[in-house]
Amino acid sequence: MSVSHIAPAGTAAPPPAAGTAPRAIVEVRNVTKTYAGGVEALSGISLEFPEGRLTTLLGPSGCGKTTLLKIIAGLIPASGGQVLVDGREVKGPGQERSFVFQDFALMPWASVLRNVAFGLELRGVARSEREAVAERHIARVGLKGFEHKYPHELSGGMRQRVGLARALAVDSKVVMMDEPFSAVDEQTRRKFQEELLELVAKEGKTFLFVTHSIEEAVYVSDRIVLLSRRPSRVSAIIEPKIVRGDDPEKIRRDSAYLDAVEDIWQQLKRYLD
């Protein structure tokens, strides 16, 4: 794994345009979702996701955070309201968005290389070209040498790296991650979180992240959206003022980090039975 050191990027200095507030690249306007059985999952959610930042949707399990993410991705239709990405209304999946799945969603019959190149293959990019791009991203997530392995030969953590490389390979502006680290072990998870910080700092992409882990949310996010229990509403938006120095380990001991975790826990506690 190549962990080069990240340039210090404080919350006051967002990547795209330092000083000015970043524009909202994703706008969610009064989105509701009622499932066929009459279950109301989302109840009038309005949100903005600033460009170049990592925003996390956090909430109790079953609160509809994945539903919201998939509505933004265009994978499931909203019952009401609209979603704008880059000013255009979402009618379905689009080239400017890519998705990282909770269960990895790797094709078991295809090699790592083919899995990563899949998005480009669907776009009709020539084989040599798409494989070159895929190889670069495979190396980027630290899987150099595994190009011709099959998913079943990889560990859970490595599989999710493939899923991440696949999402990055199409070079979309917005990367959505649905509990991407929930199926990997704790050590791998921590490593992933550190790498994610590096990725956000370097790529200048917008990341939408879903998790049910408070620590994970505070650790990786510029902005945390707390969702209430079903039918889900936005109950708070928190911007942890953590100074991200060059040592990712330091963050976990930072008092701003610990305060934010405690604060969110106090707010979420009331949703527990």
Partner: peptide
């Protein structure tokens, strides 16, 4: 999740069938 994955990468119906449904 594989079907959703294909859709998220803008697969057409026939691409989904050829690249995901039939191999799977």
């Amino acid at each position: 999740s594989l079907l959703e994955m294909a859709r998220s990468f803008l697969a057409s119906r026939s691409q989904s069938i050829r690249h995901v449904i039939l191999p799977s």
